[in-house]
Design a protein around this nucleic acid. Structure first.
Length: 598
RNA sequence: GGAGCCGUAGUUCAGUUUGGUUAGAACGCCUGACUGUCACUCAGGAGGUCGCGAGUUCGAGUCUCGUCGGUUCCGCCA
């Protein structure tokens, strides 16, 4: 097809181009037919430019009038000053006085109108993703994502990192998330797995002496989804040899500093704060504390303060080794006003019940210094003073107290704290609070499976001072083992996690034993990496960051679907190409697979 | 696996509480008019498997049960 090819994009012409003859190619975003004169907004990736067809141009007038939305056109004409400019768009000072008009392709009436304030629901937008992506808001998401790719590549390249592609078809390994399996035609009855992450490969690259590896890679996990979880997602995968935790932190901090500077023009601190997992849990009741709240409403242990009280609920908890703890709000926190009315207080009691507590004790100090509390009558003088001192309660302060099993109380208060922060708008989106959480437990006990499972992954190294406990048979001792394992948290969201790995096959075997893998099983499942470790594995460690979450944060959205070109629904389906889908019997036959009925 | 919300015209929704006339509105679409619009305006028109399937009822968009899809959260996600 012969047509006038564009000389300019739809986003660049302005008053400096007046007098030039130009050609624009693009989509009809909007036609305004006034009977004689016709205005058309032509859209491409770069913007929108208005073209004008005068009634005097008899040869093209009828054609212009017949255009529908989303037709692809080519328009040739002179750039002229507009009689009435549109200040809302960059090209609003000018328009094209069209002499030649061609329709390059027609469009059906679209199922929804392609406009910035889109009215369609997300399922329809997913089904017609190509139409949705024509919107500036969506296109901008992809362009931002692209810029972040470039920054990541650039940053690590300068630091001598090597990008290596690792296999998409790999060995299925137990532990962790469920694998997506790929049947093999050549090896009937055998399966590949799609990588949950390139973990083993990047470690083996360290054994190879690659020293510094990075990859922006796809990972696949067959688990239930959320707004911030897709079945396939992208991560920035990093691994380094001859490093400790601080080396990984320093290099990672530089990456985020660069991204935040380039994208948001925001200067991050040179060094992010870091706290241990135990401190995070004790103070904030969560392993991904939102540091925008700072050290306000920190969890305070009241178990000792109320130990002499006669309150049965508390006494039972104390006697069973549990915890009584609380958080305090003032009249204002972070500049935001906080007023806990009776109604609000009741709603928090409801919340406490919803998350599994018998109730919520509250205590308020009135402006005249008197106390008001649901449990005052149960407490003796000593306990009341104990609580007052523990919190340094002042008039206007409000205290919420939970009691029960220690970890449950901490987690409960952590949730309460977040809820209060959300309810009273303490979470300022203009703040950028990064924090490293370190020293995670190496294992936790899985009550369902009746065994220990790795908290991070099975290659995470225990801290030196805990290695001797790997031989322990005592649950408490095993649970006390701390790992060289860390998370990066940004404004209360986990952005990445990593560890210094085990590079010694004896230690690795012990870890396998703790999680219930016999030597034989370990060799069957992980033999290749155990073997690799026996040929001079260097000390190494790394980290992986959630790329989709990162871009979503920079873009200001909670749903990573907004910044993925072709995302899937929460049931892991693609509404556009309708996958997953059945396959024909011949395909199954070739694979030696027979489907179960039902 | 569990819980909540949603599903009505091409689209977004109202109508469901309290079952009852021909299921409405806006946008989009079609026809006509209109020479400076940019949410063009004006006049007219077409357009419905009320997600699907059972049930209750004289009668179901509305009530009950089931089911499918979307979405949010819990479990899960080393």
């Amino acid at each position: 097809m012969l047509y006038n090819k564009r000389t300019n994009t739809c986003g660049e012409l302005n008053t400096r181009n007046i007098g030039e003859t130009v050609v624009l190619n693009g989509w009809v975003a909007k036609k305004r037919d006034l009977g004689g004169i016709i205005f058309i907004d032509v859209r491409d990736r770069y913007g929108i430019t208005q073209i004008k067809v005068s009634p005097e141009k008899k040869n093209i007038s009828a054609l212009a009038a017949s255009l529908g939305n989303e037709f692809v056109i080519s328009a040739k004409g002179n750039v002229i000053q507009r009689e009435s400019p549109n200040k809302n768009i960059p090209t609003g000072e000018i328009e094209i006085d069209v002499d030649e008009l061609q329709v390059l392709n027609e469009s059906l009436t679209t199922p929804f109108v392609v406009e910035e304030e889109v009215k369609a629901n997300e399922d329809l937008r997913l089904q017609y993703r190509y139409l949705d992506l024509r919107r500036k808001k969506m296109m901008d998401g992809l362009l931002l994502r692209n810029r972040v790719y470039q920054l990541v590549h650039e940053y690590y390249a300068k630091l001598n990192f090597v990008e290596v592609e690792t296999p998409i078809l790999m060995k299925s390994t137990p532990e962790g998330a469920r694998d997506y399996l790929v049947p093999s035609r050549v090896h009937k009855g055998k399966f590949y797995a799609l990588p949950q992450s390139p973990q083993t490969y990047k470690q083996i690259l360290m054994v190879s002496g690659l020293d510094r590896y990075v990859q922006i890679c796809k990972c696949f996990r067959d688990e239930d989804l959320r707004a911030d979880r897709q079945p396939e997602f992208t991560q920035i995968d990093v691994e380094m040899s001859f490093v400790g935790q601080e080396d990984v932190f320093k290099i990672s901090e530089g990456l985020f500093a660069k991204i935040w500077k380039e994208i948001l023009n925001f200067e991050l601190p040179v060094r992010f704060p870091r706290i241990t997992y135990d401190e995070a849990m004790t103070k904030y009741g969560i392993d991904k504390p939102d540091m925008r709240i700072k050290d306000l409403m920190v969890i305070t242990d009241l178990t000792a303060a109320v130990k002499t009280c006669e309150f049965k609920v508390f006494n039972d908890v104390i006697n069973s080794g549990g915890m009584i703890a609380g958080i305090k709000t003032g009249k204002s926190v972070n500049g935001a006003k906080i007023e806990i009315t009776r109604k609000i207080s009741d709603s928090y009691t409801e919340f406490a019940k919803k998350i599994g507590f018998g109730g919520l004790a509250t205590l308020k100090m009135n402006d005249d210094g008197t106390l008001q509390s649901s449990i005052l009558k149960f407490l003796n003088e000593e306990s009341i003073n104990g609580i007052k001192n523990a919190f340094d309660i002042k008039p206007g302060d409000f205290v919420f107290i939970l009691s029960g099993e220690r970890n449950k109380v901490l987690a409960g208060l952590g949730q309460m704290r977040l809820k209060i922060a959300e309810d009273f708008k303490l979470l300022d989106d203009s703040k950028h609070e990064f924090i490293w959480i370190t020293d995670f437990p190496l294992f936790h006990y899985d009550e369902e499976e009746n065994r220990f499972v790795g908290e991070h992954h099975v290659f995470t190294s225990p801290k030196d001072e805990f290695i001797h406990l790997l031989d322990s048979k005592d649950r408490k001792e095993i649970e006390s083992i701390r790992a060289n394992c860390y998370d990066l948290v940004y404004n209360g969201t986990e952005l990445g996690s990593g560890s210094i790995r085990i590079h010694n096959s004896d230690t690795q075997k012990k870890v396998f034993n703790v999680i219930g893998l016999t030597d034989e099983e370990a060799i069957e499942k992980f033999g290749f990496i155990l073997e690799a470790f026996r040929y001079g594995a260097p000390p190494h460690g790394g980290v992986a960051f959630g790329f989709d979450r990162l871009v979503a944060m920079l873009y200001g959205t909670k749903s990573i679907r907004d910044i993925i070109a072709f995302p899937k629904t929460v049931s892991a389906a693609s509404l556009m190409d309708n996958c997953p889908s059945p396959v024909i019997n011949q395909q199954l036959d070739e694979l030696g697979i027979q489907l179960k009925k039902g």
